[in-house]
């Protein structure tokens, strides 16, 4: 069985140049990336690094100018497969307000499966399931515009889940949310991976969120600059800072301490690990 969810080979993309006669600039230049089924990959990069452009290739919203993108064995350049690809790969964007289409929560969640022509009783089941997964079932008859940003984003995620996609691409889903909303969205992503086996691609500026992934890919100037487990990537503090990024605060702290000759590990990605490592160091006297 093939374990590959997404295979990107030598992908090049540019937007048409606005001024005539001017050569367009590559936004992506020669990207190679293979994503395994059921994995959770975070993509980092400064604004303009090409990460959102890359994401939009994963469900054929954009098509390669060079190279290819294959999702679940389907080449995105084949127009006959576009619908099938969009059924498999869902997208969640930054602004929940732009993703809500209906006046009632459950109708909004039903929108995509309805468009897929799924029979009504099946839609009912899927909508209820999706709303339960995101913890918004009790709000099913509410009006989305009266909900908080975090709740709206959960509705948008439920709308994608109701399609039962095999892969979901999140493009900065927490950028507009408060800490509670962010925690909720990250919890849902964790559940999707664990309970539904969904392949998750998360584009984010929040290093703490990226640290929860299995793998971190760093984009810079339309190319992949780093690729590895969070513990590997986030310990390359100086390189990341040179790319306009940061590391989780807990790693930054350990790095500062190590610069001053304190012998502590660098790869403490969360508060818990960091506290344990520090306690161990300071208690052995």
């Amino acid at each position: 069985m093939d374990d590959t969810a997404i295979k990107i080979e030598n992908l090049t993309f540019f937007y048409p140049s606005e001024e005539e006669g001017q050569a367009p600039e590559d936004v992506l230049s020669g990207v190679d990336l293979t994503v395994e089924k059921g994995s959770f990959t975070a993509i980092l990069g400064h604004n303009g690094s090409g990460k959102s452009t890359l994401a939009r290739h994963l469900n054929a919203l954009l098509l390669p100018k060079g190279g290819s993108v294959t999702v679940f064995g389907m080449d995105t350049r084949d127009e006959e497969l576009t619908l099938e690809i969009r059924r498999r790969v869902g997208m969640v964007f930054q602004n929940p307000d732009n993703q809500i289409v209906s006046n009632v929560v459950e109708e909004d969640v039903a929108f995509a499966p309805e468009n897929l022509g799924i029979p009504t009783p099946e839609i009912r089941t899927r909508v209820d399931e999706a709303l339960k997964t995101v913890g918004m079932y009790e709000f099913r008859t509410h009006a989305p515009h009266l909900l908080s940003g975090g709740q709206k984003q959960r509705i948008a995620i439920a709308g994608v889940l109701a399609m039962r996609p095999k892969c979901v691409v999140f493009d900065e889903p927490t950028a507009m949310l408060d800490p509670q909303g962010r925690r909720d969205v990250m919890r849902i992503i964790g559940r999707m991976k664990k309970e539904l086996g969904t392949t998750v691609i998360l584009i984010t500026h929040h290093m703490e969120e990226a640290a929860m992934a299995d793998r971190v890919v760093v984009m810079s100037d339309g190319q992949i600059a780093m690729d590895g487990a969070p513990g590997e990537v986030f310990t390359r503090v100086e390189e990341l800072e040179a790319l306009g990024l940061t590391v989780p605060d807990t790693v930054k702290l350990m790095w500062e301490l190590r610069q001053k000759g304190v012998d502590v590990p660098l790869d403490t990605l969360d508060v818990e690990e960091c506290a344990k490592a520090l306690a161990e160091h300071f208690k052995k006297k």
Binding site: P179, R183, D249, T250, A275, K276
Partner: peptide
Amino acid sequence: GLAAPVMTELSQRLRALGVELPGTVYTV
């Protein structure tokens, strides 16, 4: 629905593990 800064949380965890830090700490 808010959160304390990561470093404040860390100092609370450290205290629970027996490492006392003076005052309140909230930046790296």
